[in-house]
Structures are given as structure tokens and as C-alpha cells.
Write a protein that binds this DNA or RNA. Structure first.
Lengths: 157, 157
DNA sequence: ATTATAGTTGCAACTTAGTTGCATTTTTGT
DNA sequence: ACAAAAATGCAACTAAGTTGCAACTATAAT
């Protein structure tokens, strides 16, 4: 998502969604546009520093509006913390990997049509509006870190 | 999971997991064994009535122990409420459907080996310990309820 | 049977995520 | 520029989950 995002992108998005363009909304949008991974709400807030500082409640209200208008997607992650990512055409719904060690959430490849269809083959009488896939484990970074620790003999406290 | 569960099942489970058999743990276990759908923590607590009443904190501690020993599985659901289900061999990991209208969580068919494998085809350097699939929408019950409402002319609040 | 010990529970207090009501400020349409 | 509508910030709240600690209970050792 970080591919040369500019303030103009944010303005366009708000315009297309028919939402009034306040500095607060633009600030939130820019943070999401610039991020390479999904962010949780406290992360978003921490990145809103200086003159971009926004009240906690306002952040929640902005995000809830964005979600309602389909600008962002919410990702339910283990541990009760919700993450957020841009919901653009170039960024279709996809599974996520959440690292049990560092808490980082990263994106995996989207499912094909037939793959998603297989998942809901039974229960045709249910109306589906979202499929969320969350894979958890240890990311390569943390795995390497643990291995290095073991090598240097510091393992098992 | 409700297929004629008895107190004996609970005792066996605790014994096999090498956990001391307290009345509180047995009570929690029996509730989970009897339930036909995954339950959230407040639900579990509400079902612990009368002489089975247990402190909120104790319930969390018991569930956290059960999870650690692989007796139960936690299901992360949209809305920040975690659900719990028995993790037995007859109840393998499977996707869940959560109804946006009534909040109910129901179980779907487990994935085949090749299906799960496809999901994590990239990122072979990650170690995976759990795949969670959560489909959300409207369950058949709520769908029928809405349709009946529309038919009787009461529609659109 | 008695006592030390480890494990378990309940209570109070806390943290974190998210929400609601309301007064104040900012946008927007004219 | 100005009124109406929308958005923001603040305080206070709810709900989920956690931590520390004292009291209780089961177990094993004497």
C-alpha cells in the first residue's frame, strides 16, 4: 500500500466516498495509505503526532465511517485487537498471518474464486458478506531470532 | 459436541491432561461438552449458576489452562468477543460462520489437507500453528425472520 | 492425625479497547 | 459572510481481560 502515496490520493478517496474532507480524516487516511502492513487503532493514533494529533474517539469515529463506506477493511486478530487496512481494488480481500511472538500482522495471497467458493459449499441458505482467514504462528524474523539465540547458547532461560 | 456428555467425560479429559480435578474445572468442562455451538466467556459464566457459580477470574484462568493443554480452542470472532469450543479428535479445526444479526457462531465443514495447504503456499519460512477461518453474514434463521417481516409489511424500521 | 507445601480460588483493583452524550468548533451551502 | 449541518474533543462510561494477594483446599511427609 505504500507505493508513493500522496495527500492527493487521500483527497480523491474522500471525494469519491462523498465524505467531507477534514484534516483529521486526511491524516488518518495518509497513515493507512503509507503503511506496508495492516495497523491497529493504537498504532494509528501513535502515528498521529504533532499538529496531526487527534482524539482517540475521533479516530474510532473516522475509522468506523471509513469502514462503513468501504474505504477500509477491519481484520479481526487473535488477542482482541482489530487491525485495519485499505480496501482498494489493488488490495483485494486476502488471508493474513499474525505472528504469535512479535504480534505483527502480514498479508498473504488472495484466494481464487473456486477456493473461496469451496469454503461455503454447505449452508447455501446463509448469505455471506465476508470471509476472513487468519493464520497464526511464528514469522521468519522471530524464527531466525530464536535460532540465533539458541546458537549463541543463551537459550531456555 | 452435545452427544450424551457425562461427568465422566470431564473427569477423563482432566485426567488425560494431567490437571487436578476441581469442581470448578469440571463444571466449566461440562458446559463446554454439552454445548452444541461455541460459547463466549460471558455465556459460560451465565451457565455456571447455583452451586456451580465461579468467579470471573477463575473462569478465565481455567479456560487459559484448558487452551494451553489443548483441551479447548479459541475462536476469534468479529466484535472482539472470543468464543470457545472443545478441541477433541471428533471435532477437528474447522471454519466458523458468525451471524452479523444475531451474533451466533456456528461450525462449518473442516478443510481438506490440500485446501489448508494451498492457503500457506507462499511464506514457507513461516511456522504455522493455527489456521482460523471466519465467514460472516446473515444466518438462515435471521434471513427468514427479515423476509417474514417484509412480507407482513413491517419492513424498513 | 498433624503439619508443611504446592496448587487453586475469590476478591479488589487495574488495563485496554471501544462507546455514548454533550458542548464547542469546523465545514459547507447560500 | 452567515446560518445550518456535520465533525471534533472531552469526560465519563462499559465490557473484556489481567494482576497481585490473601484465603482456602488437597496432597504428601512426618
Amino acid at each position: 500500500m505504500n507505493n508513493n502515496a500522496t495527500d492527493k490520493d487521500g483527497l480523491n478517496i474522500l471525494q469519491r466516498a462523498d465524505i467531507s474532507k477534514t484534516p483529521q480524516r486526511l491524516a488518518v487516511l495518509n497513515i493507512l495509505l503509507k503503511s506496508t502492513t495492516p495497523l491497529n487503532v493504537s498504532c494509528v493514533r501513535e502515528l498521529l503526532t504533532g499538529k496531526n494529533r487527534i482524539d482517540r474517539v475521533t479516530v474510532y469515529r473516522i475509522l468506523s465511517l471509513f469502514k462503513q463506506r468501504g474505504i477500509i477493511r477491519e481484520i479481526t486478530s487473535t488477542g482482541g485487537v482489530n487491525f485495519i487496512e485499505m480496501a482498494t481494488q489493488e488490495n483485494p480481500v486476502h488471508p493474513h498471518f499474525s505472528c504469535r511472538s512479535c504480534g505483527m500482522l502480514s498479508c498473504l495471497e488472495p484466494l481464487t474464486f473456486s477456493q473461496s467458493h469451496q469454503l461455503i459449499s454447505a449452508k447455501e441458505d446463509y448469505s455471506v458478506d465476508h470471509i476472513e482467514i487468519n493464520i497464526s504462528g511464528i514469522c521468519s524474523g522471530c524464527r531466525n531470532a530464536t535460532m540465533l539465540q539458541k546458537q549463541s547458547g543463551k537459550g531456555e532461560q
